[in-house]
Design a protein around this nucleic acid. Structure first.
Length: 481
RNA sequence: GUCCCUAUCGUCUAGUCGGCCUAGGACUCCGCCCUUUCAAGGCGGCAACACGGGUUCGAAUCCCGUUGGGGACACCA
């Protein structure tokens, strides 16, 4: 155990939590917990153009919904705050000044229009699209004059020539980059805000981060970060670039091809435990064959050594299966709490807990989501008003009405109306009539539920009660004859 | 286009030091069993080491190349 391990999750508040980011957060959390370290939440809100009201709160809410609680963050403070980059501007300014003073950065007065035109021209000629360093060659008097005149400017990193930059990545091993290929990255924007590249390096260092976990899309900007660490005199944290989560066509998981927001899955009725369990296995596995693991178990088993290198397709069907498994094992009270508002929305709010608990017991083996209970078994809450056509055709025989009519007397005379009483009575009745149990059961199911499938007939009749069953049989007799 | 990453069933993956792999598990699909229905469950089946060279007695496992896939090339993260 190492109590100095510090891992951060650094999302930008975009309005929703991308499932890829959820996985990064999960691995952060698992790693921090596994190593007895600290998990830090830092908000990367350095893009004022994309500022969204309420996004930060929503982000924290959905993280908590997933069961992931951080140790330090904007809402709970900590020794290395503030935890919102927009509140740390002087720190980035200071770092930029240091780089400027060292000669490892320079002021750039180029307008975005000029930059765009330059890139376009470079592209047309098939040249590299790197910044042409016009402003790097400005005379220092000239720079001072423009600065004094308040000309809008950025600060750029001066990438040294001819270097081989080496990253020792915890999942990818040694990766080499040539500095000549790197662009003179803007570090400080003209609005005074830092870009990601500056802010992440400054904050990771000042927040004493030891392990940087992030998506593979960041791998190509790692050399810039390597340089920044060196220039600023910061020791290197451990880096782990995680494999991407993919669309079915193997491109990076995108909004275009289905749901990417954790909120979407939450709203569709997925359980956080199922989502988290599923997400954990996208790019990692414990090395044994058990797949249903709680967060506590994941914490025990997690290690970066078992994180894979290649992208993983987000398989909706498997997630569905996970949800089904969790629902099956979920305590009844929790399912009931979820079910109640769903029923109320359909005007079926007036049922007591005992009844609903029975419904849940009978349905949990047959659904993957709580909302499927009212969808597939509305007849628990309302007498059927129609009868599934295909089932009528298949199960309603010419003598079914007779079978049912005579069985009514049996039902009325039963000493108790539970499945233990109903089943033998039904068997005896069928035998006495010289038929099979199915001759009674199928029409009876159709009459009481209106559909061909569902829980055991006698169990369901017990839950429905004698009165409702008799009423439904009467009605079916009127409508099906 | 340039750079970087990557490559086992349709999908998630096991395969960590090459032989125990006629390549294992899970999801999906199909069949059978169970059964009053529908499910669930049990059992079984289809299905993969991208290709080509090496190294080696022996390679899914190591090396090289090819091809495929992906990512990054912003005053967005």
């Amino acid at each position: 155990m190492n109590d100095t391990v510090r891992v951060r999750f650094a999302p930008s508040p975009t309005g929703y939590l991308h499932v890829g980011n959820l996985r990064t957060a999960l691995y952060d959390y698992l790693l921090a917990r596994r190593l007895g370290g600290t998990w830090v939440l830092r908000i990367e809100d350095t893009d004022r153009n994309r500022h969204l009201e309420g996004a930060e709160k929503a982000l924290m809410a959905v993280l908590r919904w997933c069961g992931l609680e951080w140790d330090e963050g904007p809402d709970k403070g900590g020794p290395y705050g503030p935890y919102r980059q927009s509140e740390r501007l002087p720190l980035y300014r200071a770092a930029a000044d240091t780089l400027l003073a060292q000669g490892n950065a320079y002021h750039c007065f180029c307008t975005s229009e000029r930059l765009d035109a330059m890139r376009k021209a470079a592209q047309a000629e098939g040249r590299d699209e790197k910044y042409d360093r016009t402003c790097m060659h400005l005379a220092s008097g000239d720079v001072q004059a423009r600065l004094a005149a308040g000309v809008p400017h950025t600060v750029r990193l001066k990438v040294p020539a001819g270097e081989t930059l080496i990253l020792d990545d915890l999942v990818r091993g040694r990766v080499e980059f040539q500095s000549d290929l790197a662009d003179d990255q803007v570090l400080l924007k003209s609005d005074g805000f830092p870009t990601y590249h500056l802010a992440v390096v400054v904050d990771d260092h000042q927040m004493r981060i030891t392990h940087v976990l992030r998506g593979e899309e960041w791998l190509s900007s790692a050399p810039k970060h390597l340089l920044l660490h060196r220039f600023l005199g910061y020791p290197l944290p451990h880096f782990a670039h995680l494999p991407l989560i993919l669309n079915p066509d193997r491109s990076k998981l995108s909004k275009r091809q289905g749901n990417v927001a954790v909120e979407d899955y939450r709203d569709h009725g997925y359980f956080p435990e199922a989502l988290v369990n599923f997400i954990a296995f996208l790019g990692w596995n414990p090395g044994h064959e058990r797949e249903l693991l709680t967060v506590e178990e994941l914490t025990q088993e997690f290690s970066l050594q078992r994180v894979g290198k290649s992208g993983a397709v987000f398989n909706q069907e498997k997630l569905h299966w996970f949800n089904e498994q969790y629902l099956k094992a979920m305590p009844g009270e929790r399912l009931l709490a979820t079910l109640r508002p769903l029923l109320a929305a359909r005007g079926w709010g007036d049922h007591d807990d005992i009844f609903l608990a029975c419904v849940i017991d009978l349905m949990r083996e047959r659904v993957a989501f709580v909302h499927e209970i009212p969808e597939k078994a509305g007849w628990f809450f309302e007498d059927p008003t129609s009868y599934e056509e295909a089932t009528v055709r298949k199960r309603w025989k010419p003598d079914s009405a007779g079978w049912l009519r005579d069985f009514v007397a049996v039902l009325e005379s039963l000493p108790a109306f539970d499945h233990a009483t109903l089943e033998p009575a039904a068997r005896a009745y069928a035998e006495g009539r010289g038929g099979k149990l199915g001759d009674l059961v199928h029409p009876l199911r159709l009459a009481t539920t209106g559909v061909g499938g569902g829980p055991g007939l006698f169990e369901l009749m017990e839950v429905l009660g004698r009165e409702a069953c008799l009423r439904r049989i009467q009605r079916a007799l009127e409508m099906l004859v």
